[in-house]
């Protein structure tokens, strides 16, 4: 430090992502626990999007689409697991549950699982779209 006086002052960075990573995590937690579908889907999208953005921002990856797609896939799997825990192991029961899931008196955990999976699916689509259009970053998409 002595050899580089004032280096702390020259070393200045700022990044728009941390705020949104935090907000995304907050919204997704609130949305999932209180079972508010729009909040959980939006919050999860914000979260995975910001994580991909910040990872790119930090220079670990060149383009965010791989991470975005990967996280989306993880969400789809997690959501599916939550749904499957709520139904007996038969295809009929699964379809039946899914069919009535979004009714007002549906199983809340199925709804939660579906919202997570839905967010993951949108993230996956976003990832594919991003790759296809060859954009460099999320905010330029």
């Amino acid at each position: 430090m002595d050899e580089q006086p004032g280096v702390s002052d020259e070393y200045r960075l700022s990044s728009p992502w941390p705020l949104f990573v935090a907000l995304g995590l907050t919204l997704s937690e609130v949305g999932i626990v209180l079972n508010l579908l729009p909040i959980s889907v939006g919050g999860l999208l914000l979260f995975v999007g910001s994580v991909s953005g910040i990872v790119q921002d930090a220079g670990y990856i060149d383009r965010p689409w791989g991470v975005l797609g990967g996280l989306g896939a993880v969400l789809v799997v997690l959501g599916a697991i939550l749904v499957v825990t709520q139904v007996s192991p038969s295809v009929d029961a699964l379809l039946d549950t899914l069919g009535s899931a979004m009714a007002a008196d549906g199983n809340a955990n199925v709804q939660r699982g579906l919202s997570v999976a839905m967010a993951g699916l949108i993230a996956l689509l976003g990832s594919v779209a991003g790759r296809a259009t060859g954009r460099r970053s999320i905010e330029a998409a």
């Binding site: 626990v33 079972n35 508010l36 579908l37 729009p38 007002a104 008196d105 809340a108 955990n109």
Partner: peptide
């Protein structure tokens, strides 16, 4: 029993939330 469609938000509430979130 698990509360369905949490926080007792009705359909119109969900819609409003969706718009807000968007």
């Amino acid at each position: 029993a698990i509360p369905a469609q949490g926080a007792g938000v009705g359909t119109s509430g969900q819609l409003a939330l969706t718009v807000l979130m968007g």
